[in-house]
Design a protein around this nucleic acid. Sequence first.
DNA 1: TGTACATCAGTGAACGCGCGTTCACTGATGTAC
DNA 2: TGTACATCAGTGAACGCGCGTTCACTGATGTAC
Lengths: 206, 206
Amino acid sequence: MTATDRRTDRRTALRERLTDIAAARMAADGLGALRARDLADEAGCALGAIYNVFDDLPALVLAVNARTFARLGAQVAAALAKAPADPVEQLVIMAQAYHGFASANRHLWRALFDVPRPAGQPAPDWYLADMARLFAYIADPLSALYPRMPMADRALLTRALFSSVHGIVLLGLDEASAGVPAAEIDRMIALVLRQIASAPDQPSVT
Amino acid sequence: MTATDRRTDRRTALRERLTDIAAARMAADGLGALRARDLADEAGCALGAIYNVFDDLPALVLAVNARTFARLGAQVAAALAKAPADPVEQLVIMAQAYHGFASANRHLWRALFDVPRPAGQPAPDWYLADMARLFAYIADPLSALYPRMPMADRALLTRALFSSVHGIVLLGLDEASAGVPAAEIDRMIALVLRQIASAPDQPSVT
DNA sequence: TGTACATCAGTGAACGCGCGTTCACTGATGTAC
DNA sequence: TGTACATCAGTGAACGCGCGTTCACTGATGTAC
């Protein structure tokens, strides 16, 4: 290890530490509760130090989101690993894992979809890639179910399923509408997925 | 008309005018672009006048949202009026009307779900009532489809359908994910609804 | 190993801005008689 | 109809607060020789 490496190590450590703290804060009180001064205080560094390792706060939030994506992906993958071979049940179990993650990490999960972008700017590439990776989990069982479906149609179906589950979880967890018991959310998920995915024949997309 | 009435008329007129202006601003630039000073300027009144007719800005936003709900409901109802008798097609057409409204009024539509609440407070009653009215549009065709389904199950199915459509529209219109062509969103909606709602037998909810 | 110099992490006070809300005041519009 | 008084819409300067980001400066940590 060269001397320069030690420098970048320190940088990396600070990045890491700030990301930890920001994640904890966001998890507890939501994206809107993130303050540069709080972070510096808790990290035991100067306010300006944040800007040595991150361009700005939105960049820090993106770092937190990247980590959240990874955890979410791991949780879905873990659920899939324990799932039976039946593709439909795999979809249901993964979707319920998605629900479980969202429920246990409400604020972090919401932050994934509240990316602070300047104005009309598209999300960064890694962001879309992470999203695509989530889609991929769904695409696999669908391929097993409908091997002869055209790729474009399968992509549409994948997206439709993900969006539906996302919507059910989103409105189910929404505090404004008084909230829905977790078990009911899971029932809705299972209902929708079984109906759509276990159609006797491949669903007509046209 | 008494003299006092004239006073309240002026108040009402100002409320109306401010609501118009706020709605226009929100429609153009989103909820976050709303500024008390801009409103006063554009309304040609003093800053403080706003606070004579509204408790605070969130109250004004609620007034805008109430109006948005009414317009959305009207649009869905209009679509339903032109729909064929088939309950499934009614659901599809209403959902596509929902999509059409959301697409044409993105910011106003998003504001419906971004109600600025102090902290963990539930939404006001009229808000939940308006939401319930939307649900009711869905419940009717479902009753026709599954007359013998228990009420609780039908309520769950209603919510599941609404949430699914909502999720498809939400992610479909999301700029971060590059956006999905309107026609594809409509296809996803039709796909999901036809699969779920036109099941050979009533979908098992348990 | 030691010395001179360069780099850059680290500092935190200060900048700059935005913005919701209040409040003492005015004047028009009402009521009472 | 006219006068005295009360009410309240309307005013906008000022309050109060929060907060992201910068920047001139320091000192520790590196490199060069």
